[in-house]
């Protein structure tokens, strides 16, 4: 997919951070959300949007206590896809030129964001973080599930990536305006890839670190085998 060069190469290291918005969908992230926000602030990201997806715990309060963020709350749980979309709508309203999807469970390393943003500055529309270039530490079951997800994505939508379920992604404004996902829950990650293919957006992958914390592994809602199967059925029905 051909990329368009919107930014000059000399601007690569100096993308206007004021136009970069980090969107964090948060559900049951009370143990980790404050730390995630603090880490992003330390890396210099001031425009952080947290969308609490109807968490029954104190996710909202913890995010509020962290401060230095835009905070939204879904009155009922609607799923990660819905929360991401709400966050992106907020980012567009606030004038974002680049939006970063970042998980709230502490799995991602904020230092990786800069490497993805550099690719946007080079002209790519979407940059996907991939955990599979160095999957050390990733549970074996997750690796297998990821490979299956990659094959399914390729078969259904013709786009082959090494980590179809990665939550760390960066979008240009053009991509934000064109990507129109319908899935509220776990079909979201794959649906984004479908939209990339449909809109012929330029995309590349950048290796990222993965941090498997006790919290991210113990979360009640995870992409287990049954959920994966449901996701596959929903994807097929939505073609």
């Amino acid at each position: 997919m051909k990329k368009t060069n919107k930014y000059s190469i000399t601007q690569m290291g100096a993308v206007n951070r004021k136009k970069v918005f980090v969107v964090i969908p948060a559900y049951l992230e009370q143990p980790s959300i404050r730390q995630v926000i603090d880490e992003l602030h330390r890396e210099g990201y001031e425009n952080i949007i947290v969308v609490d997806d109807g968490s029954p715990d104190n996710t909202y309060a913890e995010a509020h206590n962290a401060g230095g963020i835009y905070l939204l709350q879904h009155m009922v749980n609607r799923g990660k896809g819905a929360a991401m979309r709400t966050g992106f709508e907020a980012a567009k309203k606030l004038g974002a030129e680049i939006a970063v999807a970042f998980d709230g469970d502490g799995q991602h390393d904020a230092r990786d964001i800069q490497n993805l943003i550099k690719k946007i500055a080079e002209g790519y529309d979407v940059v996907l973080g991939t955990r599979m270039k160095d999957s050390r530490g990733m549970p074996f079951v997750k690796q297998v599930a990821n490979i299956i997800g990659n094959m399914v994505t390729w078969m259904l939508f013709g786009i082959l990536v090494s980590d179809s379920q990665s939550g760390l992604r960066v979008f240009s404004r053009k991509a934000l305006d064109l990507i129109d996902t319908k899935g509220d829950r776990y079909t979201y990650e794959t649906e984004v890839l479908k939209e990339i293919a449909r809109n012929k957006l330029s995309v590349c992958e950048v290796p990222i670190r993965v941090i498997y914390t006790k919290h991210s592994q113990s979360k009640a809602v995870r992409q287990g085998f049954v959920t994966g199967l449901k996701t596959l059925v929903r994807l097929i029905i939505s073609i």
């Binding site: 206590n65 962290a66 401060g67 835009y70 879904h74 979309r85 907020a90």
Partner: peptide, 26 residues
């Protein structure tokens, strides 16, 4: 119905979006 509920929830969330300053966290 699911789509309508999500749209309503989103509209409400966007309308009530707040900006929390660093000072408030202290």
């Amino acid at each position: 119905t699911e789509r309508t509920v999500t749209d309503l929830v989103r509209k409400d969330a966007l309308r009530n979006m707040i900006k929390v300053s660093h000072e408030k966290s202290k």
